[in-house]
Simulated assay, not measured.
Amino acid sequence: MTTTVPQPATAPPTPATTTVISGWSVLSPYGIGAGPFTQGLAERRPVVPRLNREVWHAPPGDALLVPGFDVVTVLGSRGTRTMDRLTGLTVATLGTLVDPDGTARRLDEPERVGLVLGTGSGSVQSTMDFTRDALTGAKPFYVDPALFPNTVMNRAAGQSAIWYGLKGPNATLAGGPLTGLQALRYATRLRERGYSRTVLCGAVEEFSEQRAWLAWHTRGEARRATPLAEACAMFLLEDAETAREAGRTPYADILAVRFGAGPRGPRAALERCVRGALEAAGTTPGDVALAAPSGRVAPPPGACPMGFGNPASGTDETDTVETDVLGTVLDGTDAEFIGVRDLIGDASAASAGVQLAAVLAAAAHRPRPGATALVTSVDDDGLVACLVLRLR
């Protein structure tokens, strides 16, 4: 994790009130912005994977890219000559959130606006390309120095802050599929402890040939049935009063984020994590209206499915853990399960962020004010996470 947190001149103020999500946007295989994502999810429309083999020399299988996304086309030619795809996705997503009409509008008090970004390990393509040039060139230092910044993990977050004039704390985290929830908890603490009044928070994953080949050699056969995807989801975090002063309407309150580990398997760890998060949030399973697991699975018996494509294919033991646990915890409730991975593929480090965006999209499509929503995530090493929200 790389982070730059300036120390305040005086002691941080008393912890602020509950953090709310007052804005969000996403770039996904459905398109650019929250609109296409919300519509695609509401229609439960799986994206058809198509990969241009003349452009991408990837292993067998297809991938789900942001349609029509090109850094220069979307962001313009100024300042993008050496910008890699990961950075471009992040800058573009933030643009649809803080500058949706293209008038270069900036958030108030930029010195109090922080940015926390979750990523897999930065741009795998940029790192491997730069390393290859150092190994294959006439001499190791015959490389393009302008491309070196793309190899640093916090390039996307730093460039985004420069692009939009954000002067608050800037941090980058990496944690696999749980990254989006890790970034959310980090951002929430950053704001509630007085280091930022407003925090932009999210997670990003790019598609590249290098990532595709790494995934091909590390994922099992069942996982390969799920195409890789790229996405970026960003959220605006502040307190409700700040949101009202700025004319923004909160979408949800962040009640609790919990993490756990199950060295002998994630099932028991996830159940403890979910129950602990609900208890910390002061809510009960009966209050849960929406649940967004990260796995590509069918909902448990009695649950109401939303967005499940073809759950029979491409599942493994890790995939089934979440819906099994949620089925146990939410037994007897009418909670609605939101399947995202079935529709848009495996977004890896951006997965949890996209799941959170799916919850907000579902709540916008069919409001459930006062209800509770869950977002869960599990990785192959047995790490688990659970986010509890109260919908507005």
Rank of each mutant, 00 (worst) to 15 (best):
E54L: 09
R81W: 05
P266S: 05
A292E: 02
M83I: 02
W56K: 13
A303Q: 09
G31R: 03
P169K: 02
P8D: 06
A280D: 15
G202I: 02
S351M: 12
P60Q: 04
D379W: 03
F130K: 07
V329T: 07
R296H: 15
V384R: 01
P59I: 07
E205K: 03
L41E: 10
W56D: 15
A157N: 01
T19R: 00
T131Y: 10
L27G: 10
T4L: 13
A225F: 15
E192P: 06
A104C: 10
S25V: 05
A385W: 09
D239E: 03
A298N: 03
C386Y: 01
N150K: 13
A277R: 05
R390M: 11
F148C: 12
S25C: 12
A335E: 04
P8Y: 01
T376N: 01
V143F: 02
G382R: 08
A385P: 10
D133V: 04
L237V: 03
Q39W: 12
Q182I: 11
A212K: 00
A233V: 06
T188Q: 05
S123C: 11
L255D: 05
G168Q: 04
G76P: 09
G40A: 12
T172R: 02
R296C: 14
V354E: 02
M306R: 14
A63L: 13
T2I: 13
L387G: 02
